[in-house]
Structure formats: structure tokens, C-alpha cells
Simulated scan of single mutants.
Amino acid sequence: MNGPHLQLEVYPDAGAACRMAAQRLAQALAQGGTAALAGGNTPRPAYHLLAEMELPWPAITLVPTDERCVPPDHPERNDRMLAEALGDRGYRLVRLPAELGPEQGAREAEALVAPLVPFRVVLLGLGEDGHTASLFPGHPALEATGLVAPVRRAPKPPPERITLTLRALSQTETALLLVTGASKREALRRLLTGDDLPPRRLTVPTLTILADREAADAMEA
């Protein structure tokens, strides 16, 4: 199917891929601006590296690409992970009110996100099933027309979430997809060979994929 041009960059290991992700984020935010950042464990090392860089932190706004409908202090919150990984650098962190539940949380988050687009940079991840943010293959949230969508019955726990939509994530100067580890190999192969996975539905001109050799091994064999 049609979609963004996929530009694959392969690095020797996950550490090198994360270092490049941090460098690309720093380049995009060198003059300040807003970034939408993936949660989960994969990008955490990149955020630790980013935190060590000299940037105009008070001029930077960060927002998670998605959030789990759990209490604000829950260890699985993406905003909590971002705050812990980056530390106190003076940036503004926009917290999506997912604790209100999918529908109300998405409605209130819409008002928070609207002034933030277009983003300077978006960093996404890729799940083993091909999802990105909390946009899962075949899920109704893929068809959402707003900037933030409620998610119920997500195939990966927790089942209730809110997520930035394809419309929101596509409004960016730079779109990055960080993919590391052998467990992501099949999803990356499917993405690169044309399967209708959520990242292919982005309307950005180019999606730059930062992959480690383990994840990209199937494409290089």
C-alpha cells in the first residue's frame, strides 16, 4: 500500500541505534520545539543519552505518543518513564490524562495536544504485532479523525489507553521509528515488505527507521 518513504538505517546493536535516536532528537530540538516521544523500554536508553546533551531545555515541550489508563503514579505510565529517564532539565512535559478513562481522557488530551502540532520531531516504536503508539493493526483508533483517540480492548495489556492518532503523528518535520531486538524482526520485515501496518498509514514524506542488526537481520539475509 502507499505510505511514507521508508528509509532504513541499520546499526550494529541496540546501543548504537539508541545513540543515533538521541542525536536525531537533539538535532531536531536544537532550537527548541515540541517532540512526541514513544514510551516503553526500547527508547529509554535514548532518553538517558538525550538528557546529557546541551539543549535549550526550557524551550522544549515533550508529550507521550500514547498513555495507559492507569493512575498518574503507576509505574507503567509513559509520562512517568519519560520524566525518570530525562530527569529535571527544565523542559515542559505534557501529561495526557488517561487516568480519566479512554473517552474522557482522549477528549481532554485533545485540547492539550491541539496547540502542540505540528511537532518538530516524532519518535515512535514498533511492537511485535506491528503497532505503534497505541495504534494496533485493525483497531478502530486507526480511523480516528481527531488528534487523540480512545483505545479499548487493546490486544496488549493494559487494554484501555489513549493515543495520538495518525493525523497527529503525521504532523511533524521529522518522523523516526526506533526498532531493536530479534523479537521485532518479523514486524520490521512485514513493514518493509508492504504489509498494512500502522506506521505505513502515516502521511509523512519519509519515515526514518533506526534499527539494530538483530531487528534488521531478516532484511539483510
Results as ranks from 00 to 15, higher is better:
N2Q: 15
G3D: 02
P4Q: 09
H5D: 11
H5Q: 14
L6V: 03
Q7C: 08
L8P: 06
E9C: 10
E9N: 14
Y11M: 09
A14C: 10
G15S: 14
R19I: 00
R19T: 13
A26S: 15
A26C: 12
A28M: 09
L29A: 03
A36K: 02
L37C: 07
G39K: 02
G40V: 10
N41L: 12
T42W: 03
T42P: 01
H48N: 14
L50Q: 01
A51P: 01
E52T: 15
M53N: 08
M53Y: 10
L55V: 11
P56V: 10
P56D: 09
W57Q: 10
A59M: 09
I60S: 00
P64N: 12
E67N: 05
R68K: 08
R68D: 04
P71E: 14
P72F: 14
D73S: 14
H74R: 13
N78D: 06
N78W: 05
N78Y: 14
L82Q: 05
E84Y: 00
A85I: 05
A85G: 09
L86P: 00
D88I: 01
G90E: 02
G90T: 04
G90I: 06
Y91M: 05
Y91E: 06
R95Q: 13
L96F: 11
L96T: 08
A98L: 04
A98T: 02
A98Y: 03
P102R: 09
G105R: 10
A106G: 00
A109E: 08
L112E: 09
V113C: 02
P115S: 03
P115L: 02
V121P: 02
V122E: 06
L124G: 12
G125E: 02
L126T: 01
G127I: 07
G130V: 08
G130R: 03
H131D: 06
H131C: 12
T132I: 07
L135D: 00
F136H: 14
F136P: 05
G138T: 10
P140S: 05
P140W: 11
E143I: 00
A144I: 08
T145G: 04
T145E: 15
L147C: 11
A149G: 03
P150S: 03
P150D: 07
V151T: 12
R153M: 08
R161P: 11
I162P: 01
I162K: 00
R167G: 13
S170H: 08
Q171E: 14
T172S: 13
E173S: 12
L177C: 04
V179E: 05
T180C: 14
S183V: 12
S183P: 03
R185F: 00
E186T: 11
L188E: 08
L191P: 04
G194W: 12
D195Q: 07
L197H: 02
L202G: 06
T203H: 11
T203W: 07
T203G: 01
V204F: 07
T206E: 15
T206G: 09
T208A: 06
T208H: 04
A211C: 08
A211T: 09
D212R: 06
D212I: 00
R213H: 15
E214S: 15
A215L: 05
A216V: 06
A216H: 10
